[in-house]
Amino acid sequence: MTMPVLNKKKSKGLYIVIFGCGRLGSGIANWLSSKGNSVVVVDRREEAFSSLSFEFTGFTIIGDATELDTLETAKVEKADVVLALTPDDNTNIMTALISKEYFEVPRVIARVYDPNNIDMFSEFGVEIICPTLLAVKEIQNTLGFIGGDEG
């Protein structure tokens, strides 16, 4: 499977749809947009888009990520990358799975806080970022000198 590269400069850039315009979603949207990618950000609340910076040149769509119509409006079927970054685990899982299996998006990444489900959803080819596990790892590294296992 070929994986699109995110910050391949100069060329036309990628078409990226981001669901959830919170701190993480808006931050990533600003960054990806400033790198020359076409970015569409979707959020249920219009106020959420105020956190997009002047560098952001993409589009915003007000809509619910759990409605198929919203995914169609955002042209998910044409996306190179979909990022599911809403505050709700299940919404992110559903959006990611539908983007992957139904719209056959090459690269789909979802933020999921609950580490329990990672294996199951990775089987669908969705990449899961779990902030809980990342924090656990970071704390383990910081406290590494206490434990015996050097791993």
Partner: peptide, 16 residues
């Protein structure tokens, strides 16, 4: 009342 919760619950029921 949430499709995302129904999807995840039934996927767990099926796969786990």
């Amino acid at each position: 009342p949430n499709d995302q919760d129904n999807l995840v619950a039934s996927l767990i029921a099926k796969r786990v």
